[in-house]
Simulated scan of single mutants.
Amino acid sequence: MSIVSTDRPGFELPMRFLLAFRVLIDELHAELARRGHADMRPMHGIVLQAITRGGSTAADLGRLLAVSKQAAGKTIDGLERLGYVHRVPDPHDTRRKIVRLTERGADSLEQSARIFDELRARWARELGEDRLRALEDDLRRMTPPDLFRLDVPGWFGGMG
């Protein structure tokens, strides 16, 4: 006997997860804008996270994000123009440039972490802490343990 629900089509589950993600990210960016980071975009946050997790050059970032070195370099150029990162010479290889967060870049990540905590607290108030914890526990059970899998840009087709 099959356990297929007729009132909940299978495609709705990933779409609801995508919508929940979108709601959280849109709310995050609206609040980031109010806190002085109006130029931040969702992909910027993923790239800044990749930099803090070992993406020290455009090639490193490309590997972490599963995009080309050129695509990573283009995004780094944009983040540099916005003041979120800067490049410094690699002391071990003068051909390479190391990408570092600026104070502004670090602030955007700190603000994002605070805002995500605030959003989670709001969801806990709306849904109830027990229900939200159960949802998080279920998601942990159904997803890989690496919370910072950063290859989403490449999986979605690049950062173009």
Rank of each mutant, 00 (worst) to 15 (best):
M1N: 11
M1C: 05
I3H: 14
I3V: 12
T6H: 14
P9K: 02
P9S: 08
G10K: 08
G10Q: 14
F11C: 06
L13R: 03
L13S: 09
P14Y: 11
P14M: 03
M15N: 07
M15C: 00
R16N: 08
L19H: 06
R22G: 07
R22N: 11
V23A: 06
V23G: 04
L24G: 11
I25E: 15
I25R: 05
D26M: 03
A30D: 15
E31T: 12
L32N: 13
A33C: 09
R34Y: 00
H37A: 02
A38C: 10
A38W: 10
D39F: 02
R41K: 12
P42F: 02
P42G: 00
P42L: 04
M43D: 10
G45F: 10
G45Q: 06
G45S: 08
G45I: 05
G45H: 05
I46T: 05
V47C: 01
Q49H: 04
T52E: 15
S56R: 15
S56V: 10
S56W: 10
D60Y: 14
D60I: 14
R63V: 14
L64C: 00
L64N: 08
L64Y: 11
L65M: 14
A66D: 15
V67Q: 06
K69P: 10
K69W: 09
Q70Y: 05
Q70K: 14
A71F: 04
A71N: 06
A71S: 12
A72G: 09
A72R: 02
A72T: 08
G73Q: 00
T75F: 04
T75D: 07
E80A: 10
R81E: 12
L82D: 13
L82R: 10
G83Q: 13
Y84Q: 06
Y84G: 03
P91A: 09
D93W: 09
T94A: 12
K97V: 07
R100V: 08
L101M: 04
T102G: 01
E103P: 01
A106S: 13
D107Y: 04
L109F: 06
I115H: 07
F116C: 01
F116L: 10
F116V: 01
F116T: 00
D117F: 02
E118Y: 03
E118C: 00
E118T: 01
R120T: 05
R122M: 04
W123V: 07
W123N: 01
R125E: 13
L132M: 09
R133K: 09
L135I: 13
D137A: 15
D138A: 15
R141T: 11
M142V: 08
T143H: 04
T143N: 06
P145W: 08
D146R: 02
F148K: 02
D151Y: 05
V152P: 01
P153T: 00
W155R: 11
W155N: 01
F156A: 03
G158M: 05
G158P: 01
M159R: 01
M159P: 00
